[in-house]
């Protein structure tokens, strides 16, 4: 009972960490603490508070939050190892732990190597993976997931079309975030200084690498918006009664609207620190919400789900034992059916 709550806390703290990381880059404080893993020679947690000034406030604060989140994820993975019966969920915990360790090392390397673009972009991109892993763990350990959202009249439908479009949307959002990180770390955030036009035109009249990555991010935003509209439209049209799909869809729409606004404000304000940092963390929340929607839409493909077809389909309960592939295998009529009530 406590595990999903704890996992949700870890996910929330990871979002806070991403916001803190956004503040570091937005304030240009990435190198304000030149050493790592120490801070000006002090052990991280003994660094004097009265020396937390200027850029150190953001950079050292980011390190403190990151180390705390790392500790929380360590506890989460141990908790899953000790208490979680599903192997694939335990593996999610191990992967999250490995990812957050790698993330810490990338953060250290990028400081010691004076913020090379490639490492900084990798650091920003892996942060999203860590966040998604913690959100996924919180989701799949929740009671709603375990009961296959069967509190309603019927379990979540196995709508392949929705699964496909939601998965594509989630993947595209991730690519868009990587493009945003590239724009951010190559100082291309104001390469196109006006909005919504680009140098007064729909397409920039001049090009260089910074303008190209900036424009790609803008076009990507349109792509994300279109895909989110397609996904949520599908949910509203076909699955309006499904609360577990409707709610993240509404949230996703709101977050995308907020994210577009923040992106515009970031450009128009000349990269004001708060707008800029909120744009980073809201992007992460868009990704995580889309992931939640994708996973919930795919719930029937995980083990323990009662199978209900798409609006035009119906079928027997899906037995399976773990990953979606096994569910598909178990549906093969040539195979014996799995015991009912297998844990998901």
């Amino acid at each position: 009972m406590l595990l999903p709550l704890y996992a949700a806390l870890v996910a929330a703290s990871t979002a806070l960490l991403i916001f803190a990381g956004g503040l570091v880059t937005s304030t240009g404080s990435g190198l304000s603490v030149p050493d790592w893993p120490t801070s000006y020679g002090w052990f991280m947690f003994t660094f004097p508070l009265d020396k937390m000034v200027g850029g150190i406030y953001y950079e050292h604060g980011h390190r403190l939050i990151a180390t705390t989140v790392g500790g929380l994820i360590l506890v989460l993975s141990v908790w899953l190892w000790r208490a979680e019966p599903r192997l694939w969920v335990r593996r999610l915990g191990y992967i999250a732990l490995a990812a957050v360790i790698a993330q810490g090392v990338l953060g250290g390397i990028t400081v010691l190597w004076y913020l090379p673009d490639a490492i900084s972009i990798a650091h920003a991109s892996l942060a999203q993976i860590v966040f998604c892993l913690t959100v996924a763990i919180a989701l799949v350990t929740s009671s709603g997931w375990k009961q296959a959202y069967s509190g309603a009249a019927s379990p979540t439908p196995d709508d392949r079309m929705l699964q496909a479009v939601a998965a594509v949307t989630t993947g595209f959002i991730y690519v868009q975030i990587v493009a945003g990180a590239t724009m951010r770390h190559t100082e291309a955030g104001l390469a196109i200084p006006d909005f919504p036009l680009a140098f007064g035109h729909l397409v920039p009249p001049q090009w260089d690498p910074k303008i190209a990555i900036h424009y790609a991010h803008r076009v990507g935003a349109l792509g994300v918006t279109a895909l989110v509209l397609a996904t949520t439209g599908h949910v509203f049209f076909h699955h309006w009664r499904r609360r577990e799909l409707r709610r993240p869809s509404i949230l996703l729409l709101l977050l995308v609207a907020l994210q577009l606004t923040l992106g515009a404000l970031t450009v128009l304000s000349g990269k004001q620190v708060i707008f800029n940092s909120l744009h980073v963390v809201t992007g992460a929340c868009v990704l995580a919400t889309s992931l939640v929607l994708t996973l919930r839409a795919s719930r029937a493909r995980f083990s323990g789900a009662a199978f209900v077809g798409s609006p035009r389909e119906s079928g027997p309960p899906s037995p399976g034992f773990g990953v979606p592939g096994r569910v598909r295998a178990a549906r093969d009529p040539r195979l014996p059916s799995a015991p009912a009530g297998a844990k998901a």
Binding site: T27, S29, G30, S32, V53, G54, G55, I56
Partner: peptide
Amino acid sequence: TKEVMVPFKCDVHG
């Protein structure tokens, strides 16, 4: 080596 100019900055105080 010669270089015009080498920028110095303090990231603590932007």
